[in-house]
């Protein structure tokens, strides 16, 4: 016995929420887009945004983000796509390929930034040489992505950058920030962060949809996406454990994550006085905002690239 769409009687693909109506592929897509639209309205994500940089990795969330934004706002907001080739062997190429296929299918103008070509290093190198870099690989990757997104946003004069962070990500980061006492970090998890000097505004239109929902959406759209784990992502530790616990909790307390996140955003974030902007200085290397003389991106790049030059010099001396 198959389940049928409560609206039209076609074969159902999912329920709108546990205990709610059944939806077919077409009506599921519309339901998902309505949820994104409600998030955009609730948090005024597109206020003052005429040109929007959409960061697409090629994974399910950012592919869902691109399609939903294109369908909902493609006629009002100029979308510019960005995909970053991080140089992770066996992982980055199919991701970038999936991102490009989506940009091209939708006719969205886009840029591909290759970390190795533009900046002279890769995430694989940062991982191999993490003692030299002095940061965990996932932290390097986060800094690299944020830096490139912001630089490209400035370059193409985008009013904001949209990322595919979903409710799973944001509720997980929320709990981790609280558990680890990084309460000030919570403001970074808001659905929208405003422009501050050369730091372009960031928006997270998928803040109230879960990973299960973005995954269902891209599957029913038939959009190409790359569904793999990053080889550098830790398979053990607090993060994956907490993530599994949140999923189990969601099964027994439906809507728990949405409740926690929206309550924190509306009741707790306004009480956190943003600490006097940490990044008040200007990087002497690249001119971007920095917390010291050099920004964290340039510190990483210089460690990897400069030491690379030394190695070449030494080996040519020996040769």
């Amino acid at each position: 016995m198959l389940r049928r769409c409560t609206i039209c009687g076609e074969r159902a693909v999912a329920r709108a929420a546990p205990g709610r109506r059944y939806l077919c592929a077409k009506h599921y897509a519309e339901h998902f887009e309505r949820r994104v639209a409600r998030t955009v309205e609730k948090y005024k994500l597109l206020r003052g945004v005429e040109r929007l940089l959409v960061a697409v990795s090629g994974g399910k969330d950012s592919v869902a983000l691109l399609h939903a934004l294109h369908r909902l706002y493609g006629d009002r907001v100029e979308l510019v796509g960005l995909t970053i080739d991080l140089g992770i062997e066996g992982y980055s190429s199919p991701q970038v390929e999936a991102a490009k296929q989506n940009f091209e299918a939708l006719g969205v103008e886009y840029r591909v930034v290759r970390l190795s070509k533009e900046y002279g290093f890769t995430i694989d190198e940062a991982s191999r040489r993490r003692k030299l870099v002095r940061r965990p690989t996932c932290s390097v990757c986060g800094i690299v992505k944020r830096y490139i997104m912001n630089s490209v946003a400035l370059e193409v004069s985008a009013d904001a950058v949209a990322t595919g962070h979903n409710l799973d990500d944001l509720s997980l980061f929320t709990l981790m920030s609280i558990a680890q006492g990084r309460v000030d970090d919570l403001v970074k998890l808001a659905p929208r962060t405003e422009r501050a000097g050369r730091l372009v505004s960031r928006i997270r239109p998928l803040a109230l949809v879960s990973g299960k929902e973005t995954l269902t959406y891209v599957v029913v759209l038939g959009a190409p996406f790359h569904h793999e784990n990053c080889p550098h992502a830790p398979s053990d530790g607090l993060r994956p454990k907490l993530s599994a616990m949140l999923e189990a909790l969601e099964d027994s307390v439906p809507e728990f994550r949405r409740m926690m996140y929206t309550n924190i955003v509306s009741n707790l974030l306004p009480r956190i006085t943003r600490p006097a902007e940490v990044e008040t200085q200007t990087c002497m290397v690249c001119g971007m905002p920095a917390s010291g003389k050099t920004c964290s991106f340039c510190r990483i790049r210089l460690r990897l690239v400069e030491s690379g030059k030394n190695r070449v010099a030494t080996s040519s001396l020996r040769g």
Binding site: A12, R15, N166, A244
Partner: peptide, 29 residues
């Protein structure tokens, strides 16, 4: 997300003999 012949299925649907694919949502963000 559980797929049957490439299409998601509601979790309260009755299981039929054959193949299913289970996609993990916590991956490939």
């Amino acid at each position: 997300v559980v797929l049957r012949e490439g299409s998601p299925v509601p979790e309260d649907e009755v299981v039929e003999e054959g193949e299913y694919t289970v996609l993990l949502a916590a991956s490939g963000g």
